[in-house]
């Protein structure tokens, strides 16, 4: 790209970022308002280290702006273009393997999951569920992570299968709910809270856009599927199966 071509490109990019900067500020006003209200009026305490706080808020705004831009130019296009390529390749095996790998790979390293698994292991050790040793807790935490990652991989693969076949989503979800309820009666009570929570923490900020773009892309490429009705739903599976799998882990282990 020559220098004179680059100038309008940069200008367009800056204009675009400027517009989404105001969106990001608007997105953050509620959280700032809530914290200010409770700190100043309910708890009646001054805001500590105001300069630092302001700096942090500016970083959050800049970060959100850059992320949303990257989302539209990077994550969405690659998710959709790969969905189209898989649909035209027509190999179910590779598509399902890709879906599983995407679910498993993005979850195993998910920081929120690592935090929750460590916390769960710590709590389990102090509660006497497992031996209070370094080895036992780290075994327990990594077992939990592996279980959740396997279940998310499985969920995305089943979800992709559903889009291809055009199964109505609510039968599968209701089936999953029944699975959760049945497992609740068999699982040790200590693991139920963690199991229910693990459904929510699996889907990270990078996974969600990619998986959404994959689903919508597949539903767009396959004849007879509606992107709105059939394209969404992958995240729903990914937040349901970990509950069942983690309770199963509890039944087997404890």
């Amino acid at each position: 790209m020559r220098a004179e071509d680059q100038a309008p490109f940069v200008k367009k990019l800056l204009l675009h970022l400027g517009a989404s900067l105001t969106d990001s500020i608007r997105d953050l006003i509620p959280i700032i308002g809530v914290i200010a209200f409770f700190q100043l009026i309910v708890l009646r305490q001054p805001i500590p280290d105001f300069g630092n706080l302001l700096g942090g808020v500016v970083m959050v705004v800049v970060g959100l702006t850059l992320f949303v831009h990257g989302l539209k130019t990077g994550l969405f296009p690659i998710g959709e273009s790969m969905a189209h390529s898989f649909a035209s390749k027509g190999s179910m095996f590779w598509l399902l393997l890709f879906a599983f790998a995407l679910g498993f790979g993005t979850t195993i390293a998910e920081p929120a999951l690592i935090a929750v698994a460590d916390e769960a292991a710590r709590v389990a050790a102090t509660g006497g569920m497992i031996a209070n040793t370094q080895y036992a807790t780290s075994e327990y935490a990594s077992g939990l992570r592996l279980t959740v990652a396997l279940s998310v991989g499985f969920a995305i693969a089943v979800g992709v299968m559903r889009i291809i076949r055009g199964w109505p989503i609510h039968y599968l979800i209701i089936g999953g709910y029944i699975g959760v309820v049945i497992m609740t009666f068999f699982a040790p009570p200590e693991i139920i809270g963690i199991a229910y929570d693990s459904g929510g923490v699996t889907t990270s900020t990078i996974t969600v856009p990619l998986v959404t773009a994959l689903g919508v892309g597949l539903a767009t490429s396959i004849h007879g599927r509606n992107p709105l009705t059939d394209g969404f739903g992958l995240i729903a599976f990914a937040s349901l199966t970990p509950m069942i799998f983690v309770m199963l882990y509890g039944v087997i282990l404890l």
Partner: peptide, 16 residues
């Protein structure tokens, strides 16, 4: 952009 954005976002959240 995604990586930079997330890093700024997380840093800001953790700082403030």
């Amino acid at each position: 952009f995604v990586i930079l954005g997330l890093a700024f976002f997380l840093q800001g959240l953790e700082q403030a």
